Simulated scan of single mutants.
Amino acid sequence: MSRSVFVTGGNRGIGLAVARAFAEVGEKVAFTYRTGEPPAELLELGCLAVKCDITDPEQVEQAYKEIEAAHGPVEVLVANAGITRDGLLMRMSEDDFTSVVDTNLTSAYRVAKRASRGMLRARSGRMIFIASAVAMLGEAGQSNYAASKAGLIGFSRSLARELGSRNITCNVVAPGLVDTDMSAVLTEERKAAMTGQIPLGRMGRPEEIASAVLFLAGAEATYVTGAVIPVDGGVGMGH
């Protein structure tokens, strides 16, 4: 039987690839988007598009009600939605810091807490959080982003301890530099400098991140929880 899968920020980049990968193996996929129109390719695959600002608790609750009505309680949660507002600390406004933390970390708390209701009742579930290699390495000009993504690791590992006795696994995927809209804003010189530090010598593809997510959600990963899976071309090895 196909499961109810919920992907936040599924309208582009890694989230889009994750939603597509789950849909292609027959899962019932719902994904959030905040603005614009949802991707036609996901709608054609039968995915449920849910317009939701995950920084708004009321919209998160409404999103869950829509998903549960259509697909049943969420059995696999992929907390992927995230933003960047880069800048050196001395120039970073409080809003730039708090908005990144709220979107990337606090919203993961919101969706995980709500998903845990059905998972606890079912005594089964998978939570997968999309962090970043930056969470462990740090990056100049990304103190807000690095802090939010590092927070996901501590959050996920704490949930793994809380929920493990109910057969709910909680894991993190930590991508490196990936070819998405988020990295498209970088200059070619900056991309070249960053890829020069990656042992595999290239950016990752969203589909490569999706493969790791599918593994953690699959039957092969029933004994994996509290883990951080790097998918970063080797840039973060040793962390």
Rank of each mutant, 00 (worst) to 15 (best):
R20A: 14
A30C: 00
A108R: 01
I229D: 10
I168Y: 02
V111H: 01
K51C: 08
D181Y: 10
V101I: 15
N11W: 02
S156L: 03
P57D: 14
A115N: 13
A49H: 11
E208A: 05
A23V: 09
I209C: 03
E94R: 15
Q197A: 15
S2W: 03
E207N: 12
T32K: 14
R3I: 06
V111W: 03
Q59N: 12
G138D: 06
G13F: 11
R157C: 04
N144Y: 04
T55F: 03
A40Y: 00
L159C: 10
T195L: 07
V134M: 03
L137V: 01
A21C: 10
V235F: 00
G26A: 12
L42A: 00
G82F: 02
A131Q: 07
G218H: 08
A30L: 00
L48E: 05
G10C: 11
R157D: 07
I198L: 07
F155P: 03
S158Q: 08
G151L: 03
A227H: 13
I198A: 11
D53H: 14
A133I: 03
E44K: 14
Y64T: 09
R117M: 11
D86G: 01
R202W: 14
P199Y: 04
G46H: 05
D95E: 14
I168L: 00
A133K: 04
S107L: 02
G176A: 11
A133N: 10
L163Q: 06
E58R: 07
G196V: 06
V178K: 04
G10S: 13
E207F: 06
A192S: 15
S165T: 12
G26D: 12
F22N: 06
D181L: 14
V213H: 08
G26L: 10
G176P: 09
A115L: 11
I14E: 13
E27T: 01
L42G: 02
C52I: 13
M92Q: 15
M203Y: 08
V213L: 06
L105H: 04
R123Q: 15
L42V: 00
I153F: 01
D86Q: 06
V235E: 05
G9C: 08
A193H: 08
V213E: 06
I54P: 02
Y145V: 00
E58C: 08
R126N: 15
G72R: 01
G226H: 09
T106Q: 06
G218N: 11
A131W: 01
V101W: 08
A193C: 01
M92H: 09
V60L: 02
G9H: 13
A140M: 06
T225H: 13
H71E: 01
C47K: 03
G236E: 04
S132R: 05
G82T: 07
A192P: 07
N144W: 03
I229C: 12
G125F: 05
S165H: 13
F129V: 02
L43Q: 14
M182D: 01
K51N: 12
P206R: 12
G238I: 08
V178L: 02
R161M: 13
F155Y: 09
D53N: 15
